[in-house]
Design a protein around this nucleic acid. Sequence first.
DNA 1: GTAAGTGCAAACGGTTTGCATAAAG
DNA 2: CTTTATGCAAACCGTTTGCACTTAC
Lengths: 329, 329
Amino acid sequence: MQTKAKEKEIFLEYLKKNGLKQTTQKALVLDTFLQTEGHLSVDDTYRIVKQKDASIGYVTVYRTLKSLVACGLAREVDLGDGRTRFEHFYDHPHHHHIICTSCKKTIEFLSTDLEQLQEEIMKHYDFEALYHSFQIYGLCSDCKHKRVSTPAAKKDETRNDQVFVRDALRLVINVESKGLSFYLAAAEKTKHPDGRAMFYKIAADEKEHLNILKAKYERLMARSKTLENEPQFLHYNAAILNQLFPPVHEIPKLIPEETNDLQALAIAIDSERESYEFFQTYAQRFKDSKGKRVFVNFTAAEKHHLAQLQKEYQRLKSVYGSQNANGLG
Amino acid sequence: MQTKAKEKEIFLEYLKKNGLKQTTQKALVLDTFLQTEGHLSVDDTYRIVKQKDASIGYVTVYRTLKSLVACGLAREVDLGDGRTRFEHFYDHPHHHHIICTSCKKTIEFLSTDLEQLQEEIMKHYDFEALYHSFQIYGLCSDCKHKRVSTPAAKKDETRNDQVFVRDALRLVINVESKGLSFYLAAAEKTKHPDGRAMFYKIAADEKEHLNILKAKYERLMARSKTLENEPQFLHYNAAILNQLFPPVHEIPKLIPEETNDLQALAIAIDSERESYEFFQTYAQRFKDSKGKRVFVNFTAAEKHHLAQLQKEYQRLKSVYGSQNANGLG
DNA sequence: GTAAGTGCAAACGGTTTGCATAAAG
DNA sequence: CTTTATGCAAACCGTTTGCACTTAC
């Protein structure tokens, strides 16, 4: 309920700034919007609000919903039928819609491909993007096979946000596991004792970070029994991730047996930098939301790890440098 | 005017099939739609039609435009203001819109990234896609810099189709040039006389095909003075194309000096197959249109070239095989 | 002659506005 | 006590429908 307080604060501030007045009606509509967490039409909202205050007018609901848009708590979305729907915007991931033209069921998903395409197109035509909309219309699984349509699993957007966090955690856990396997395999292949020890040390770092992420994931799962089985919300190109750490079978080619600790560090620094840079730009593409924060935090962790490795690299180099000066190299 | 005849034929057939009747009003609306080639609202159309026949009713225009949609000549598009607009659909590339929220200028573009994403998402959720819509809203160059807005360069969709052809030709010419450079460079690097001769022969094939494409491009340009400078319509990821033929600096690694004619053929077959397979799937993503046909034809040409190379490979192998049998190998 | 088309007016449905009254600051 | 909000009714606007009349086949 913390975030709800934040949202109310935003609304009140918006009212104050524009010389507007607080009323019980506005509060009622806002509460309804915050609690319902779905695609609300004016009609939907009016009906719900009416139960709590029979005297409220249709137009008041209209006007209040519009001001929720104006202050950034909501956004209007057009799902193809004539009516405007309002969905949560503040601290919620931007997303796109799949709409079944037969049973009107909607599924929401998120892909940064669209933001990337938008960026490219905008740059090409010298536009400044404000927002975009992407909808796919089609037949859902049920309607396609002429089954009885399951009545639109009423996914609300708090759920969306949680699923985004789940998907984001799964992704970074996946990456971190890849990193771990890579360093372990590299250690196995390395004959040089210092190099091997260094790879094991870096692998231990990865393992530690991985455990933190896994613990976060477990905690999230513990909070909701059904979250694990929700359909995927965040979509990404798996091929990109495979480029972050080379596959295990390429390790013999990449890591010579005689790799020493300094060289091992250099290899790790390259990998970590690549990962860090990827997530740096990737995280940017998301709108503020809990899921985005997973990536932002991961990026920060990777940056920190990278800095540590670089520091260690400098330290080792100067040690070996002075050994060389002593004729020991 | 050939395509216009085709479109009229489609409409008449649609009428006949549904037991509907030909009228002067319908013909008038259809003619207006075919001639105007832009985003027509009902109002726009009504105003134009009214000049030719003052007695025509608003509703008739409505109904006729709807039947143009029903028979596949037009599609409805929502550009954010309240009104439905009708744009050409038959034999026109599907495209997406950038809309300036300030001056309402729209730019159209095409990218297969969206069709690809759609495909992936649809597979993931077991949907059957019918259509999708993607719009980017923002500020155009003029409005962003508070310049006087150039009054919406009135791009019509015949133009679109031509620009698509132009972009498609540029793309395949680019690829074919890459192929030519690759084979020429390979020939240069090859010391084995048979291998070198084979690479030169394949390069000559490429050169011939390239000249055909360039001639087509020149003919297109000759037809319109301004086409060359139209903004890009088809957008694609340049990185993908760079993968079709290896860059020249990698040739020493890939082509050993002692490559013989059989090996040269094998290398060419691999490259041509990759190009063929890429354009095979790429062309599929487009809706029927002149631009698509550029890719379809290119794919067919690549397929044919590939088959020729394979035949030559088999022939050479059997020749060498029999030489081997004669103890000459 | 029969079935569909046309043009008009009226209806429709979501949205917006004008206005008298009510409530907030 | 001024200013904005509310709730109602009426207006709006793009679109659709009902219906008497007209036209195509």
